[in-house]
Amino acid sequence: MFLLPAAIFFIAFFILPMGRLFIVGGSGSRGWSAYAAILTDAVYFNALLATLGVAAATTVTTLLVSGVAGVFLQRHPFPGNRLLVSLLTLPLAFPGVVIGFMVIMLAGRQGLIGTLTQALGGDRLVFAYSLAGLFMGYVYFSIPRTLLTIMAAAEKLDPRLEEAARSLGASTWRVVRDVILPGLKPALISSGAICFATAVGAFGTAFTLATRIDVLPMVIYTEFTLSANIAMAAALSFVLGAVTWLVLALARSAAGSTVAAAG
């Protein structure tokens, strides 16, 4: 009875659109083979690989940066600590388009990095309009989302556990491996899953950077608007949604029931 609102929400906003999307995906000139085409057609398959690759790289990098920074910031209260945390979490408020524009300012044709490398006597380094630029934008975009979760988890780590491990002879690296990482695991998995799902689906940043970055959201956009291939766009959307859902579901089961909510 109490689940009814949730069930209605789930049916109206998940089952119905996904079902419709699935059917539309199979209604084009290719028929149901549109789904097979995602794996057999090089354009779609490469886009899928690029999307998953960028999302995976973004997730790993973000967790690495946020993990180290989060634990450090939580443990070492120095003057300006809180200011730094609020600066680091500022991009939370930025839309993807703004992030994309910032990447262009940094690594675009007139960008800071290009000017710097040229001044140092090398070629003008420009990578804003490629997967590397997209990766940078996503990492910047994802850090605030993971940092706060990791800081909250780091606060709950029992310092006595680390002292116990050290008393048994554990080096700093062993303490990280055996105590800190297992303690942060639920937070890493849940925030990593969010980070991955966001990076898989983010469109604004990619669209701002260039139209020729072949990630799935961009391909869906081109299929839909330029080629008017609605069926293919729907099939790709369905697969994108399914992949994202699968990653979140796997993360939830890996992290255990306690973090299901956080995931």
Partner: peptide, 11 residues
């Protein structure tokens, strides 16, 4: 060897 009030066992 060290023994803590909170046990500090690895969960």
């Amino acid at each position: 060897g060290m023994v803590f009030q909170s046990y500090a066992l690895f969960p």
